[in-house]
Nucleic acid binder design. Structure first.
Lengths: 159, 159
DNA sequence: CTAAACTATGTTATATGATAACATAACATC
DNA sequence: GATGTTATGTTATCATATAACATAGTTTAG
């Protein structure tokens, strides 16, 4: 795990979520805030059913059913607060919700930690390729699996 | 649909599959060939259960079970003959099986037609971004949803 | 202030996608 | 043709996601 202050991460994400909801004229309900918080407590993508269990453990809710979670995930995705990581069927906090399009997601295959990295030159290359093929982009996803620096070092020191 | 000769497409894909299997020292069995053929009969990504049904309809097999299809899909993926389109949970023929990494997949949200477009500058941008973050890429997926040229034209003429 | 409209959540059932575990068959090699 | 290997069949089950409808909570207009 990178050494960075998680609490600050979470606080920032929630603060931003409140702003976004205000701007969009929608409500950040308790449920939505709880799920967003759970997601941000990891930098790993979390599956919907895991989130369901976490929600049962970490709130006074007793029985949480799938639709509850999926609706909330849909809401958070719709307002750019989280991403779905399709290669894992899992969900991760969005660190730059102001962008139209999804950035590159770097996913470590060892620790699962996921970083969203904005990159103009990737975007430009995609846009160029799209326009060359007269293709109008609505949505895109770039997921990159591999090993992060800390995990590589750790593996090296293990052997 | 682009006007291009499908049969040539399919034939080329099967020819290439035979080469690849020969090189890799594995067998292109009847089942594998049938599924590869079914996949190539579309330029749209097909789901595993749809393929299962198509296989029952288009072969003398009576009951095809999920593992049969999934094992075959795994085989075809492993040998670079098809791609899984994660955003659709579906499978599409790979048009350039010699590459290490997956190219950009342009998926039309109207007709579903999918094109795999190799693009060095996208790949370079990804590699650069990865190396800047000291991230070792093992695998990647870039899926771009939007509208293809024919569908845009068609829509324009409809209105 | 309360009825109506809208938004959010609860509940039950089910659809869809994928795999585990073990049995059988086909093929290859000696 | 016995043996090991690869491929496929079979049954059950897990994992992911949604449909459809019921209830509750919020907002707004009259």
């Amino acid at each position: 795990m990178h050494e960075h202050n998680h609490q600050i991460c979470i606080d920032q994400a929630l603060k931003r979520a409140k702003q976004v909801c205000l701007q969009h004229g929608v409500r950040l309900t308790e449920l939505r805030e709880q799920i967003l918080r759970l997601i941000w407590q990891n930098h790993k993508p979390l599956g919907a059913y895991l989130l369901m269990n976490l929600l049962e453990e970490n709130s006074d809710r007793e029985h949480v059913a799938p639709p509850t979670v999926y609706r909330t995930l849909d809401f958070l995705i719709e307002h750019g607060l989280i991403h779905k990581v399709h290669s894992l069927n899992a969900y991760v906090g969005c660190s730059s919700p102001n962008q139209d399009r999804c950035n590159a997601l770097f996913i470590c295959s060892v620790c699962g930690e996921t970083e969203e990295i904005p990159n103009n030159s990737i975007q430009q290359a995609i846009n160029l390729s799209a326009s060359q093929h007269k293709f109008t982009v609505e949505n895109q996803m770039l997921e990159i699996m591999g090993k992060c620096q800390p995990c590589k070092q750790k593996k090296a020191s293990d052997s």
